[in-house]
Design a protein around this nucleic acid. Structure first.
Lengths: 139, 139
DNA sequence: ATACCTGCAAAGGTTTTGCACATAC
DNA sequence: GTATGTGCAAAACCTTTGCAGGTAT
């Protein structure tokens, strides 16, 4: 939350209730929600906020580096309030997306250098499988 | 090409000129084209083929495992005729997508097991950076 | 006071769908 | 001959945009 205030002040962006709400929601959630999901979740508390505003707030937050955009290949984007570089895993059965903690792939950028003539800057690693619940249901 | 014939026969799918053209194009290309790109590329030789048919052909090819779908986070899908599990890299400047060869991440599924309660099945690894051409242009 | 942001509605881009006709088997 | 696939147009999604009015600084 302090990050938000500082960075917005520094970049001369306005700290509106809508932007705060979106950021707060992302910081408190581990669900990697889509814009639509965020919009619906904030609806009760911010009934007048529009979906377009959610999209605009997300774009701004991504631009200033407070939030990261994920694309697990569903045809839409998801957002993550945790900006440190960590892999994600999606359940092929129920679609939920979880963080994988304790494993950092930043060093991969270095290991991959010898296999490409690109200047490697970042990476995204996605795993796919079956979550605990869906595994149990199958039994 | 033999794969295509065999698998389609086995799954009782029809081997139409359109499906063959899409598959052949993907096998011959290293560009990881989108549906639109494939459609335009095949236009001269198949002027009556519709974009919807390209989409349907791609869906079928992905379903039977002859082609893989990529999502580098552009808001659309790209397709790859090379189905073995390899990482991709996209240029943040010009948007091109290249294969990274000589590096296989299948063993990552095993190494990641201790960090998640999912049953890990597959993964997708994307790198982002600057390609040779764009690096040189900047100088 | 004013530059920036919101909310609405409309537009833009990608992918899917329904249906009549065509074609691979 | 029949089930499946194609081509067209329309629809369904997700995301962006333009603009008038509102608000944080």
């Amino acid at each position: 939350m302090n990050n938000l205030t500082e960075i917005f002040k520094e970049k001369k962006l306005k700290l509106t209730p809508q932007r705060i709400a979106v950021y707060k929601y992302l910081k408190s959630s581990k669900e990697h929600p889509s814009a639509e999901t965020i919009y619906k979740a904030l609806q009760p508390e911010y009934p007048t906020m529009s979906l377009a505003t959610v999209y605009k707030a997300l774009k701004t937050l991504v631009e200033v580096g407070l939030v990261q955009e994920l694309n697990v290949g569903e045809g839409n984007f998801r957002y993550d309030g945790n900006i440190c570089n960590h892999p994600h895993i999606q359940c092929l059965s129920c679609g939920r997306v979880d963080d994988i903690e304790g494993f950092c792939f930043t060093d991969l950028n270095t290991s991959i250098k010898q296999y490409t003539d690109y200047e490697v800057l970042t990476n995204q690693v996605y795993f796919y499988g079956l979550c605990k619940d869906c595994k149990n249901k199958k039994k």
